[in-house]
Design a protein around this nucleic acid. Structure first.
Length: 328
DNA sequence: ATGGTTTTTACTGCGTC
DNA sequence: GACGCGGTAAAAACCAT
């Protein structure tokens, strides 16, 4: 039983990243403080992102792209409104390009003459052609559609799609695409984004909704992470707990116990090198046992996609760790 | 390619409903 | 007898070197 602190990298490859002196990292991937790796908080009042631990200002003079809220009457609404919709990375042109409405109405809402209608139709056609003119844009359009589709299938929230879009966009900008499929990079981006957002999906789940083989996803993922210097920590077992618990119709109580078990396991260092998914599954099973809720190992293995043997091994270790704490 | 570790597969035995 | 559970051995998968 060697006490090796090997990071689990099977489907969770996390590359070590040399931290450059000038931390000119773009805001879209910043999750942790570069100094003390503490939690970051956004101060919208001053437009700053600060570290709650050491107070380091990570990002200043940010632009708030959202609309001003709280307008009490129509006059105020006009004053406070900033023109246009908020930009989003989920559209290939950030939602900024011109779009010609489909309604054949003029600015006053009056219908157009048939001549004008024809003209507008031609304009729409050309506008669409220009909008997706060069290959990069078309590429992006397809990729974002793909990301959206997979994210929906996996029930991932919008912010994950946003992040995935950002990652993909960067990959495109850095010319990472040649030699790799659009689907592959889209999938890898989504996988990375899900993990960054703390709502990880296993490689198997991702592969299930992607057109690309698991191997290629893993390969591309590693490549993208390395090239873009994304910092992604090994998945936290606890982030799988809620999903498993709800899939098994377990009470909040046992979900809490499962987290607790994982906490003590972490403090004991039991978790290093083991599959986060397996750990989470075992914790959920053990917690259900402790709260007298009937769940079979095979049921847990089903929802977690983990073998029963692994669940057995892990949950023994979890319980031992728990007792070890109780003794001391 | 190799070696070390973890996970999976397959099989067996035990107790209970 | 089917089912849930535990254990073991060998194979496969995986990461690091």
């Amino acid at each position: 039983m060697s006490e090796n602190v090997r990071t689990y990298t099977a489907e969770h490859a996390d590359e070590q990243v040399e931290t450059e002196d000038e931390t000119e990292t773009s805001a879209d991937e910043e999750l942790r403080c570069p100094e003390c790796s503490g939690q970051l908080a956004t101060d919208t009042e001053h437009g700053e992102t600060v570290c709650v631990d050491c107070g380091l200002v990570v990002e200043a003079d940010e632009i708030d792209r959202g609309p001003e809220w709280r307008a009490f009457d129509s006059r105020e609404k006009d004053e406070k409104s900033r023109v246009g919709a908020p930009t989003t990375n989920m559209m290939h042109d950030k939602g900024l390009s011109t779009n010609i409405g489909w309604q054949d109405k003029d600015a006053y809402g009056k219908s157009l003459s048939s001549r004008q209608r024809e003209k507008m139709q031609r304009l729409r056609t050309w506008n669409e052609r220009f909008r997706t003119r060069d290959s990069k844009e078309r590429n992006l359009k397809q990729a974002l559609g793909e990301i959206d589709r997979m994210a929906s299938a996996l029930g991932l929230p919008d912010n994950v799609r946003e992040t995935a879009s950002v990652i993909y966009r960067r990959a495109l900008d850095e010319d990472l695409l040649p030699g790799r499929s659009i689907e592959g990079v889209s999938t890898a981006s989504l996988y990375a984004a899900a993990r960054q957002a703390g709502t990880p999906r296993s490689l198997d789940e991702i592969a299930g909704v992607s057109r690309v083989e698991k191997d290629e996803i893993a390969r591309t993922y590693r490549y993208v992470v390395r090239e873009l210097k994304l910092e992604i920590q090994p998945a936290d077992p606890e982030s799988y707990v809620p999903r498993f618990a709800s899939d098994l119709d377990l009470s909040d109580e046992s979900e809490r116990r499962a987290r607790q078990l994982l906490e003590t396991a972490k403090s004991q260092g039991i978790h290093s090198g083991k599959s986060p998914v397996g750990l989470a599954a075992a914790a959920v099973y053990a917690a259900a046992l402790l709260t007298n809720e009937k769940v079979t190992q095979s049921e847990v293995s089903e929802v977690a996609n983990i073998s029963e043997v692994t669940i057995r091994n892990r949950y023994h270790e979890l319980l031992e760790a728990e007792e070890g704490i109780a003794m001391s």
